[in-house]
């Protein structure tokens, strides 16, 4: 993964792409997948205290319209399926923000029988926000970082998804179509 980022950095952006990236970073539309508990942190970010709209960031209704897929909190296996479908419906360029500790390593659901632990194994996450819950300031910082990455042309999660499509599909298949008992298999997933 690191190698790829290095590679991307080496590739020079064309001037056109630089300009377009400027517009992209100034207008980030979110699609929040609010099944996790992290969603409760978003309203303060949107409303008058922190006012996300200052940066041109706003909520959108459907995946077709959105740029950023915001996965708030844990993702159970059931929601993972919907997540993948939603992610694949988004037009490129598309980015994913993993929100909260659960998307990084499962958080408090680390040993749960039906919650995935590493979101990045199934859809390419561009940036993670750690914390349980992350503070609104953390969300703003993550968005700031994402904006910088977009401007530098580093946020290329969607390319990664295309390049390693088989790997992602294999992981998705493994978890979605697994057979047998659900209990006691949580440890196996993180090998």
């Amino acid at each position: 993964m690191l190698n790829e980022i290095e590679q991307n950095r080496k590739e020079r952006q064309s001037a056109w792409e630089y300009v377009i990236n400027y517009f992209r970073k100034r207008s980030i539309w979110l699609l929040h997948y609010c099944t996790g508990c992290g969603a409760v942190e978003l309203p303060p970010v949107m409303t008058s205290r922190w006012d996300l709209e200052r940066f041109g960031v706003g909520p959108m209704a459907t995946p077709r319209q959105a740029d950023v897929f915001l996965v708030t909190g844990y993702a159970s296996i059931k929601t993972l399926k919907r997540m993948i479908r939603t992610y694949e419906q988004m037009p490129k360029p598309r980015w994913v923000i993993g929100f909260g500790a659960c998307t990084i390593n499962g958080g408090i659901y680390y040993k749960s029988y039906n919650v995935i632990n590493k979101l990045d194994r199934y859809i390419p996450v561009d940036i993670f926000i750690s914390g349980c819950m992350p503070r609104p300031e953390a969300i703003l910082a993550a968005l700031e970082e994402l904006r910088n990455m977009i401007q530098r042309g580093e946020a290329k999660g969607y390319d990664r998804y295309v390049k390693n499509y088989d790997w992602y599909k294999k992981n998705q298949k493994e978890i979605l179509e697994r057979e047998g008992s659900l209990f006691g298999e949580a440890d196996d997933e993180n090998k």
Binding site: P63, R64, R82, R85, T86
Partner: peptide, 15 residues
């Protein structure tokens, strides 16, 4: 642009 089949629609993520 990029064409998708007719049934590939926004369905709140459901298949």
């Amino acid at each position: 642009t990029h064409k998708t089949p007719m049934m590939d629609n926004y369905t709140s993520g459901e298949d």
